[in-house]
Amino acid sequence: MSNLPRGVIDLAQQIVSEFAAKGLMVATAESCTGGLIAGAVTEIPGSSAVVDRGFVTYTNVAKMEMLGVQEETLATFGAVSRETALQMVHGALFRSHADLAVAVTGIAGPGGGSAGKPVGLVHLAARSRSGNYLHREMRYGDVGRDQVRLATVLTALEMLLELSQA
């Protein structure tokens, strides 16, 4: 049984129910959440009908090898950036059989932040095969590693639902 908050479980159940009804599959590309988004959705019975795969790409090398993120993008903008999140979600979508994908990259803490990229900064991107996409830059604050990661999961699930209704 899951120790995920009720809000996360409720959103995951909504995704499984709605995506199954629409015949939609999803893929995830996760850095700071380390697989929690895919884990939340796969907590739900019937999730095999909607989850294609998840990529956990914690290092820059993994982002490049598994998702096709360009080395130049990482060098210019950094791993935690809008540009990297958009390339991650593109790679997840086109290296899977999913209809929609979500990608997250951020600084969960407690360390690793800087003045320009503080702890709690997360870039999220969601994209559909039809080309629709969303990007959100979230600044959750230095609220603790667990809270940043859970807040990111909630935002990612909300974005998938929003995009599926576009």
Rank of each mutant, 00 (worst) to 15 (best):
V51K: 00
K22H: 11
G34N: 08
R82K: 15
E18N: 14
E65S: 15
E83Q: 15
R53P: 00
V69K: 01
T57S: 10
G39Y: 06
R53A: 04
A38V: 13
A79Q: 01
T28V: 12
S47C: 08
A40E: 09
G46A: 05
M64V: 13
R53E: 10
A40R: 00
T76E: 14
V80H: 03
A38K: 04
E72M: 08
G34T: 09
M66H: 12
F55W: 03
G68S: 13
V61R: 14
F55A: 00
N60S: 13
D52Y: 11
V80K: 07
T57E: 11
T57P: 08
E72L: 12
V80E: 01
L67T: 04
V51N: 00
T76G: 07
T57W: 03
V26S: 02
G23P: 11
I37S: 07
T42I: 11
K63L: 03
F55P: 00
A62T: 07
K22E: 14
G68K: 02
T42G: 13
R82A: 14
G78S: 09
S81F: 06
C32A: 11
S81D: 04
E18W: 06
R82D: 08
T28D: 07
A62Y: 03
Q70M: 15
A49M: 08
L36T: 05
A75C: 11
G39K: 10
V26R: 04
T42H: 12
P45L: 09
V61H: 14
V69P: 02
L36G: 01
M25F: 14
A21F: 08
S81N: 05
C32M: 12
A29W: 03
G68D: 05
G68T: 00
A27G: 04
I44K: 01
V26G: 01
Y58Q: 06
A79P: 10
A40V: 04
G35N: 13
